[in-house]
Design a binder for these strands. Structure first.
Lengths: 332, 332
DNA sequence: TTGAAAGCGCTAACAA
DNA sequence: TTGTTAGCGCTTTCAA
């Protein structure tokens, strides 16, 4: 910048004014500065600019999600990007892989880079450690799961309601032996979805059989194993509620392996690619991950603008998409 | 940092030494400084640190891909993250959406934030504009497509060879009416894959029928339309080579709509989620996007370490996965 | 409308 | 082993 000023024959401050498009510079000097800048391959340094700026905003967000290549979370990422892009904000994205240490490491990494906000899916049991960061002016927004021990803005799906809808849909087809296959209890959303399953079963006065509940499925292969075990047991289910996209995919494979895809009903939580092209097409309760991302970014911007806003929890509703697998009647 | 120094009763430089874990500070002072730091909610400012540092490395990469929520590219992203994570590098990720203006905007946005390297999929017809950035010390690595008019490190799949393998596989089943459905010609990879198709057809002395070549499919719905048009034409193909993941998904739907999924053979380029669970399961030439990402990140680090390295093009090989749809014989 | 001086939070270079 | 001074590239403040 100094070189640009020298070449243009103006002061540092004038170059700064031109670069930042501040008003009050004569057209003559503007073009002089711009010519000098391009001649010298000048590129404005946002990090240095930020250092001296009074608002200390870096126009940078950090995003911490389960896995950047998980279709659900990458859609959330996409939604955030869409809103951030409009405001000239760049987004760091990273995967936690369900690791509490990594969550903390990433928060520190982003905080040290002075991001304006972190949008994250909580993994650590308890988020109170973030109070430290917030005191420093960092904005925190949670997506997909609510934080624990820490009051902050949050965007979630109506997990319990969605799971209840899914389960009730299966019960409405006449099923009584409805299995639940889900993530383990440390995952908030898995718990809420189990709750929805419980509620639907209770509403229909159908008792839950413990042997039809599997809460150990975290990966797709694990889900396949769990579902195979259910199908091979003495009292197999006539319908399955799979509480997450990867689990549903695993369940589809297990049903196919036993040739039961047309006789055992299946409803999944989360839509997934090609669900409509399978045979039978898979009925799901679809979330709207892109919308979740968009809302989270909007919430972040709102709080940056007004830090004293009351914290709010936004619930994005899910919707049942009937495709075939969830409409299979019992005893077929 | 100044406050920490004051509270600990030491100089600024000593705090700097402790924070950067430089050797040569007595244990006594280290603990004093650390106590003061945590008491004051001190968080090291990497952007300010970088400003004064001699190497001027921000430990930050920028990633520009087609779409962060495209499964192929999000897997590339994941691969990059894995390598970057080991070195403490944070990754900005953004989608270009095949827009040349956006590509340039993103390069500027990342360059202004002083990323150490940009890993990108080129969209602009010609990358010579990047010479400007490289003169400033920015490292550039290309993924998925080679740059044009600009010599730089690059990681690609053997597109032509993979497409040739796919087409030859169909020809080996006895097909003669093999259709090509691909992206338009502005996309390098689409061109290379078309070349592979041409080569395989020539090797088998099978002439290409122009009416069986569709190069207008960019999105999944467009692919469905194109394939429907092929199937409904007077001389429909008995086999289809779909030159990209989204296109293959569109082709599957079109075949299903006409009830032809068991009579018209299909091989896709790129693997995709649930391809093995479809009926029939879809034969593909699979790329290894995660490995592509890993290699790209390694290339970036290598060049940062030694800017004078000769530029290199890494080719990650693809592999044919036979699943059923590609093994359907003609005339069924 | 333009510019000079000070300083953002930090580290390099050198001195003690 | 510890501290001092200067300055990274920029913007603020204030003066002209």
């Amino acid at each position: 910048m100094r070189d640009v000023a020298a070449l243009a024959g103006v002061s540092l401050k004038t170059v700064s004014r031109v670069v930042n498009r501040e008003p009050g510079v004569s057209g003559d000097l503007i073009s002089k500065v711009e010519r000098a800048a391009s001649q010298l391959d000048y590129r404005h340094d946002l990090t240095a600019s930020n250092l001296r700026r009074s608002d200390r905003k870096t126009s940078t967000f950090g995003l911490i999600i389960e896995d950047v290549s998980n279709p659900f979370f990458s859609a959330v990422h996409r939604g955030i990007e869409e809103v951030a892009r409009e405001r000239g904000v760049a987004v760091f994205a990273a995967s936690v892989d369900e690791s509490p240490e990594r969550e903390k490491d990433l928060v520190v990494a982003f905080s040290q880079r002075r991001v304006d906000a972190i949008i994250m899916t909580p993994t650590v049991r308890e988020q109170s450690y973030l109070a430290y960061e917030r005191r420093g002016g960092l904005v925190l927004v949670f997506v997909d799961r609510e934080p624990r021990g820490f009051d902050a803005d949050c965007v979630v799906t109506d997990n319990a309601a969605g799971a209840e809808t899914a389960t009730a849909h299966l019960l409405a087809q006449g099923h009584e032996l409805v299995a639940f296959v889900g993530d383990d209890e440390t995952i908030t959303t898995a718990n809420q979805r189990y709750l929805g399953y419980e509620r639907a079963m209770a509403s229909a006065a159908t008792s839950i059989r413990p042997e039809l509940v599997s809460r150990e499925a975290h990966t797709t292969p694990a889900a396949t194993r769990e579902v195979l075990a259910l199908l091979d047991a003495p009292n197999p289910p006539t319908a399955i509620f799979a509480a997450q996209n990867l689990i549903t995919m695993g369940a589809v494979r297990a049903l196919q392996m036993r040739g039961l895809q047309h006789s055992v009903a299946l409803v999944g939580f989360d839509d997934f690619s090609m669900a409509d092209a399978l045979d039978p097409a898979v009925t799901v309760v679809a979330q709207d991950p892109r919308e979740i991302g968009r809302r989270a970014a909007q919430l972040a911007f709102a709080r940056i603008e007004d830090p004293d806003l009351p914290t709010s929890v936004h619930v994005v509703s899910s919707s049942l998409i009937r495709r075939g697998s969830g409409e299979i009647p019992p005893g077929r």
